[in-house]
Structures are given as structure tokens and as C-alpha cells.
Computed example of a mutant assay.
Amino acid sequence: MDQESKMETVTTLKAAYIPPKGPGVRLRGIRSELLEKHIAQMISEKIDAERSPPTPKTDFCSTTQRDYCVEGFVPLTPEITQAHDYKTDQAITFWSENYQRIQGVTAVQTPTAPFRKSALFSTPISERLDELQLPSDN
């Protein structure tokens, strides 16, 4: 047995098998082949058109242009009913509107500013100067 011999690349099947040969003449006509190619091309174009629809036209219109620059739009400024000073006026919020219904809030001294700082918890009753009448011990 020769250890350095190379393995054969051809098997008995490959050596015995011969691929079949074509008849050597046309089996279909040229017109038939061209018709088949044309139909296949039409179908593939139709499927491609269904899969990728054309992109819609881009609308480069901003919200301001669409909503406020429309013909017939008249901007209305509300009439001033009373003078307001944003530096001194108390802000109107849900809590300032409904302070009477809130539980756990101390007695409101001025209805215009219900959430101002109150020292009623820490001031002894004898030192309360702003009250004319002392609260009753119920």
C-alpha cells in the first residue's frame, strides 16, 4: 500500500455517466419564445407597480400657512373688560377657584389671595392682634 498516493477525483458514476444531448434543432418557434418573454415582462412590471406605488406629491405647507394665511381669515383680539397687572394680580387656577371645597386648608383670611402664608398655627391666641374676637373653644 502506497501512503503517498493521491486519491482519484473521478468516481465510477462520473466515468459512466454521459449527460443527455439536445436534439440539435428548435423545439419551439421564435415567435412563441418572444411572446412568452413579452408576457412575462408585462406581468413583472404590473407586479412591481403594485408593490411600490408612486410616492405622493410632498406638501411643503406649514401649519401657519395652512390655517392662518387662508383667504377670509380675520384675527380677533378679545376686548379688555378690566385692567390687569401681571405683577400684582393673583393667578387664577383650579385651586384658587375651588379653595372653599379643599379639605385641610386653614381658614382663608382674604378671598382674593387664599393661599398666602399664614402664621395662625404658630401664633399664640393671646398675641393675635388682628382678630377682634377670640375664637370660641368648642
Rank of each mutant, 00 (worst) to 15 (best):
S44W: 01
P78C: 02
T63C: 06
S52Y: 12
A49M: 08
P78H: 03
I92Y: 02
R28K: 06
I47D: 12
C69V: 01
I92D: 07
F60G: 10
I80H: 03
F94T: 08
I43N: 06
P54K: 07
L27E: 10
R26G: 05
K37V: 08
Q109Y: 07
D67N: 12
G104D: 06
Q41T: 09
K87H: 07
E36P: 00
E97G: 03
F60I: 11
R66Q: 14
P114D: 01
M42W: 00
T93C: 09
T81G: 06
T64K: 03
P78W: 00
P75M: 03
L34E: 11
Y86Q: 06
E79W: 01
E45V: 03
L35A: 15
I43S: 02
F60R: 14
R31E: 15
Q90N: 14
P114S: 01
T63L: 09
R101Y: 10
D48F: 02
L35S: 15
D89I: 03
E97C: 13
P78F: 00
I80F: 01
D67G: 00
I47K: 05
K46A: 13
Q90C: 11
C61W: 06
D67L: 15
A40M: 15
T88H: 05
E50Q: 09
W95R: 11
D67T: 07
C69R: 11
E71Y: 05
L27H: 04
F94S: 04
C61F: 04
S32G: 07
F115Y: 12
D85T: 07
D85W: 04
K87V: 06
A40Y: 05
R66M: 13
A107K: 15
P54Y: 03
C69T: 10
